[in-house]
C-alpha cells in the first residue's frame, strides 16, 4: 500500500477514461474528415463539413430555435424557481418540506414519461410544436432543478449574516438585495448555466412535443443521424463542444465548476 492511487489503479483508470471519452474524441476527429461518409482513416482532412453546416437549413433553424428556447427557459426558470427556493430554504411558507418534495418530484420521473404526459396535455391546447409549448415542457425539468440547487445555496448561506444586516436597519427587501443575492451569485450562475444546458440538450421531451412547425436542434440531429451518418453532425458536435467549453470556462470563473458538477 502506497500513498496516492498506485500504478494498477492508475492504469485501470486510464483505460476507463479511454472508453468514457472515446465517442467524443472520435466525433471531433471525424469532423475534420474530407470524405463524404465515415471512413477510417479519412482520405484527407478539410473544413468542408463546417462550411456545409451553415448551409444546412433544418439544422440551422433548429440551432436558432434551441438557443432562443434555452434562453427563455433559463430566464423563466430562474424567475420562478429562485423565489420559491428562497421561500423554502428560509421556511417562509408552511409545510416547506412537503412543498420541496412536490417540486423535486419531476426530477425523479423518467423524461420519457414526462414527455408523453406533456404531449397528451399540450396537444388538445394546440401548444405542441410551438415555442410556448416547448418552453413549458422544458421547464418541467429546469424549474425543479433550479429549486433544488438554490435551496442548497440559500440553506448554506449563514443565517446570521442576514440577521446582522437586518439589525443594521435594512428592510427585508434590501437585506435580500444587498446581502443574500450577492452571496448567492455562484449558485445563481450554476443554475443559469445548467438550466440553459439542460434545455439546450433536452431531447426526449422535445421529441414528443416538437413538430414540423418548431423542432429543436437535438430533435433535428436525431432525425439526421437516423437518416445517414456523415461527418456533418460531427462538425456540428465540435461547434457545440467548443461552445460548451467556452461557457464552462466562463462559469468556472464565476462559480467554480467543481461546485457545479458536485451537485
Amino acid at each position: 500500500m502506497r500513498e496516492g492511487a498506485g500504478p494498477w489503479l492508475g492504469a485501470a483508470a486510464a483505460l476507463v477514461y479511454v472508453v468514457l471519452l472515446a465517442p467524443v474524441a472520435v466525433v471531433v476527429f471525424i469532423a475534420f474528415s474530407a470524405d463524404s461518409f465515415i471512413v477510417f482513416p479519412p482520405s484527407g482532412y478539410s473544413l468542408r463539413w463546417f462550411q456545409r453546416l451553415w448551409a444546412h437549413e433544418a439544422l440551422m433553424r433548429g440551432l436558432s430555435l434551441s438557443l432562443m428556447l434555452a434562453g427563455i427557459v433559463t430566464i423563466g426558470s430562474l424567475a420562478i424557481g429562485v423565489p420559491a427556493a428562497y421561500a423554502i430554504a428560509r421556511a417562509k411558507v408552511p409545510a416547506a418540506g412537503a412543498l420541496k418534495a412536490f417540486f423535486l418530484a419531476p426530477l425523479l420521473l423518467p423524461t420519457l414519461v414526462l414527455g408523453l404526459a406533456l404531449l397528451m396535455a399540450l396537444q388538445p391546447l394546440r401548444l405542441t410544436a410551438t415555442l410556448t409549448g416547448l418552453a413549458l415542457g422544458h421547464m418541467v425539468m429546469t424549474v425543479p432543478f433550479v429549486i433544488r440547487l438554490m435551496v442548497t445555496t440559500f440553506a448554506t448561506l449563514p443565517d446570521e449574516v442576514e440577521a446582522a444586516a437586518a439589525s443594521l436597519g435594512a428592510t427585508p427587501w434590501r437585506v435580500f438585495r444587498r446581502v443574500t443575492l450577492p452571496l448567492a451569485i455562484p449558485g445563481l450562475a450554476a443554475s443559469a448555466f445548467l438550466s440553459f444546458l439542460l434545455s439546450f440538450d433536452e431531447t426526449v421531451i422535445s421529441l414528443f412535443i416538437s413538430g414540423p412547425r418548431a423542432s429543436t436542434l437535438p430533435v433535428e440531429m436525431v432525425r439526421y443521424v437516423e437518416g445517414r451518418t456523415d461527418p456533418l453532425v460531427a462538425a456540428l458536435s465540435v461547434v457545440l463542444i467548443v461552445a460548451t467549453l467556452f461557457v464552462i470556462l466562463v462559469v468556472e470563473r464565476i462559480a467554480g465548476l467543481a461546485r457545479v458538477v458536485g451537485r
Binding site: 437535438p218 440531429m221 443521424v225
Partner: peptide, 8 residues
C-alpha cells in the same frame, strides 16, 4: 449532448 455521443 447524448446525440453527439451516440453519433460517436
Amino acid at each position: 449532448s447524448g446525440v453527439v455521443r451516440v453519433f460517436g
